[in-house]
Amino acid sequence: MLSPGEKFEDHVVDEAIGHGGYATVYRAYDPNSDRDVALKVLDDEHRDLVHIARLRREFEFARRLTHPHIVTVYDRGPGWLSMELVAGGGIAGVETTAKRLGALEQIADALDYTHNRAIVHCDVKPANILVRQNYSDAVLIDFGVAHAIADDIGRRPSQIEASLPYAAPELITGHAPTGATDEYALACTLVEMITGSPPFTAPSGLGLIEAHLHQPPPRWSHELPWLPRVFDSITAKALAKAPEDRYQSCREFVSLIARALH
């Protein structure tokens, strides 16, 4: 862990603001650009080739994308990168359903933009959606397991790198991801933001895999009387087991939900 006031690669560290499975994110000051940044640094035990490559991948994909709801990256080095400081916290901290839906519509736009550039995020989940300080702008972060669709032709991923509660069936079965893969994860995220938990829960990873592959989505309107029945049918299509049975875009799905809950 870096300490407040400590210097790291020309940055002056202020405080730790987040920690994932393999890296810590700090608020830091970059004197070269005269701005505060989010500085993501690999933990000592994860300074191996796999995680260094993942961080480089995160930087390279994000740098290819210019969109108001995709995090801006600034600089990188071996085992670290700097990016836009998104100071409002995670989407789970957004208080109202209407504001959460507004944030998810912005993320849907960002994902459709990404897919139009033949990139799949592959790890859409609440932890990877931040909001700016005014709470009116959502930002998609962490392209560490993203895929360029062209790179995936003829290649079967060797392991699941996405988070299991949000992993589409095709990722679990080792097929190359498409835009529909992100749509499925966005649907899982939306359900969690609206109902309090993702569509499928299980006490084990194997149980979650089984649910994604074989269980139909719940009928939430039966448990939550304030949800209209159409919520179930709209969401079920976005959570279809076969990618080709889902909506043509992320925006179409979230717009239908927003209209249903208006």
Rank of each mutant, 00 (worst) to 15 (best):
A187T: 01
C188R: 05
R259I: 11
Y26M: 05
A38S: 07
A240P: 05
G174C: 07
Q248D: 13
D112Q: 11
G196A: 10
A150W: 10
A211W: 06
D137W: 03
R117M: 11
I17F: 02
E15K: 13
G77N: 13
I172G: 07
V131C: 11
P31M: 12
P198C: 07
H46Y: 15
A127S: 13
T66W: 01
I119S: 01
L65E: 00
L65W: 00
Q133S: 15
I257S: 02
C188Q: 05
L190I: 04
G154K: 07
E223H: 11
Q215T: 15
A258C: 10
A260E: 06
G144F: 04
D123H: 07
K237F: 09
S158L: 12
D14F: 07
E95D: 15
A38P: 03
H115G: 05
A146V: 10
E183M: 07
L81C: 05
N32F: 00
I70Q: 01
L171F: 06
D10L: 09
P78D: 14
L85N: 02
V25G: 03
L39I: 03
V145G: 00
A162C: 08
D123T: 05
I153Y: 13
M193A: 12
L224T: 10
V94T: 02
L140Q: 07
I194E: 01
R229L: 13
H262A: 11
M83I: 09
E95S: 15
A127K: 10
Q248F: 00
R229N: 14
P217C: 08
D245N: 13
D14P: 03
H121V: 06
P198D: 06
G89R: 06
I17A: 04
N128W: 08
S204E: 10
H147C: 15
T97A: 11
H115K: 08
T189R: 02
L186A: 03
A238G: 09
I194Q: 02
R246D: 09
P4Q: 11
R57N: 14
W226M: 10
A92S: 14
R76E: 14
R251A: 14
R246S: 04
P126D: 09
F231I: 02
R156L: 08
H19S: 15
E252T: 12
E84D: 12
E84I: 13
V191N: 04
L171I: 09
A28P: 08
L208K: 01
H69D: 09
D10V: 10
L186R: 01
Y113S: 02
E210Q: 14
P216F: 07
S197Y: 08
A16C: 11
N134E: 12
R229S: 15
A240G: 08
R155P: 00
A238R: 01
R27A: 12
R35F: 09
R246A: 06
V73Y: 01
K40V: 08
G205C: 10
A168R: 00
Y184D: 00
I153T: 13
L49Y: 00
N116D: 15
M1E: 14
E161T: 13
L111A: 09
S163E: 02
Y247L: 02
T72P: 03
K99H: 12
E183V: 10
E170V: 11
T178R: 09
A146M: 08
V73W: 05
